[in-house]
């Protein structure tokens, strides 16, 4: 008769967590922050077709870092869940909180019961009716949920990136300022990220029913270019909604 080796539950859980953390940290990070019109999500991603950021529902977006096949399956499930809920009840009844809970349950379950935890961290973002009502749910590999209302960072080196972004964060900044801060927070001091290294999408209140919009490279480039005489103070109310240079013109 064979006896399985005894492994202390603490050790077992710790090994799984270390495994997940290590593999997530290997991938490229992603930041999300609120701006005047909603939420901007900026990921370091050189692929134009394998997206890290996607649309889930009218006001809800999804972003993931880590293993692509795992977070993409989560994304599809999220779209299915949201569309079913909107069909059975009403479009207004679909919210990020319940979706984040569902993800948390699932990821927590996999972490405790399966051999291998999910090697992903995901973000469920929902743009609110006005500034200050946006929500960011950051869900970790073990199913723990962090609820943020200003910014969040997913992936490796999250702490140092968050610190750099925090330093520049301003309430009510425009898309350009938010994106420049996000990109320099991601790149750090040693390197510079260009439009082709980034995947950017916004959830904007101004977009109508479906708030999600991908920001294409020409527009990213225009937004990343520092405005005349880089402002360090908060932009006065009247100048906030500067028209974004037309992407098609580039």
């Amino acid at each position: 008769m064979s006896m399985p080796f005894y492994v202390a539950p603490e050790q077992f859980m710790k090994d799984k967590a270390d495994f997940a953390r290590k593999n997530i940290a290997r991938g490229r990070p992603l930041v999300a922050t609120v701006y005047v019109d909603g939420i901007v999500i900026c990921a370091e991603n050189t692929s134009r077709s394998l997206h890290k950021v996607s649309e889930i529902y009218d006001q809800i977006a999804f972003a993931g870092v880590g293993r692509y096949n795992e977070f993409d399956q989560l994304r599809r499930s999220g779209v299915q869940y949201a569309d079913i809920k909107g069909y059975q009840y009403s479009r207004e009844d679909v919210d990020a909180r319940s979706l984040a809970n569902l993800y948390a349950q699932y990821m927590g379950n996999v972490f405790t019961h399966e051999m291998k935890p999910l090697e992903v961290e995901i973000l469920v973002a929902e743009v609110g009716a006005g500034p200050g009502q946006d929500q960011l749910f950051h869900i970790l590999y073990d199913g723990s949920v962090v609820d943020e209302d200003r910014m969040t960072v997913l992936g490796g080196e999250a702490e140092s990136i968050a610190r750099r972004l925090e330093e520049r964060f301003q309430v009510g900044w425009d898309l350009g300022a938010a994106l420049r801060a996000a990109s320099s927070a991601l790149s750090g001091d040693e390197r510079q990220l260009g439009a082709s290294d980034l995947e950017v999408a916004v959830l904007a209140r101004t977009n109508g029913r479906r708030a999600f919009r991908r920001v294409e490279p020409p527009e990213i480039e225009a937004l990343l270019a520092p405005p005349d005489g880089e402002r360090s103070e908060p932009v006065p109310d009247g100048e906030r909604n500067e028209p974004v240079p037309d992407a098609g013109a580039g």
């Binding site: 077709s49 997206h51 996607s54 649309e55 599809r76 779209v79 299915q80 909107g86 069909y87």
Partner: peptide, 16 residues
Amino acid sequence: VKLFQLQLEHYEKVEG
């Protein structure tokens, strides 16, 4: 109509 609208939107979101 409701199903058809959802069908198109669902495809677009899932497939990109």
